[in-house]
């Protein structure tokens, strides 16, 4: 349905009269803020994915488990499952952060490279597939399940992972694809 775009004061959103979905927001985009968030997310994501999230004391051995390790171990038996876990928990958040860093950087320095078009398309495709918050809940479910079998210790990766999750969620809620497309068009 066609709607008229109203003149909005900053901070207000216009919603569709039919389906209540947001059609326009008057939020100001801060590319410098997005860029800073993206860079910190990229720094945090290396230890978050490679340091042990939890350590388990099992059969006399204490061993740490990280995020990538579990997915890689299934690759022979269930490649599809392994790929999905890697894609939703590692690949899409990282790619999404890279994309946002790139587009914010372009906006900060007023550049419009031909690649920006593809990067923005990739960003909107990846937005649904970044599932770090689902992973955190899964981790909690797994921890409660494991507590009856073995002694558990939180690893150093846990802190980095939670930091990554918070930064990532902030970025996704701050991000507004429409504004970036507007910027690219008005070049």
């Amino acid at each position: 349905m066609v709607s008229k775009r109203p003149n909005l004061q900053s901070g207000y959103v216009a919603k569709c009269a039919r389906c209540q979905r947001t059609i326009y927001t008057a939020k100001v985009v801060r590319p410098d803020k997005m860029f800073a968030l993206a860079i910190s997310a990229l720094m945090v994501c290396i230890p978050a994915f490679s340091f042990p999230l939890i350590s388990v004391h099992l059969l006399g051995i204490t061993e740490g488990t990280n995020l990538i390790h579990g997915a890689i171990m299934m690759i022979d038996i269930a490649p599809l499952v392994s790929f999905m876990v890697l894609f939703c928990a590692v690949l899409s958040p990282t790619l999404l952060t890279l994309c946002m860093a790139f587009s914010s950087f372009c906006m900060m320095y007023n550049k419009r490279p031909a690649m920006l078009n593809y990067v923005l398309k990739l960003t909107s495709a990846l937005l649904h597939w970044s599932m770090l918050e689902v992973y955190l809940i899964s981790l909690m479910v797994a921890i409660v399940k494991l507590m009856s079998y073995a002694d558990l210790y939180y690893g150093s990766g846990m802190l980095f992972f939670i930091a990554l999750l918070i930064i990532n969620m902030t970025m996704i809620s701050e991000y507004n694809n429409v504004k970036y497309w507007e910027y690219l068009r008005n070049g």
Partner: peptide
């Protein structure tokens, strides 16, 4: 998206129990 939860739990379990 929350249905993926079970897959993540499996991947954690596989990583922990590998003896």
């Amino acid at each position: 998206r929350w249905s993926i939860l079970d897959l993540f739990v499996i991947s954690i379990m596989v990583a922990v129990f590998d003896k």
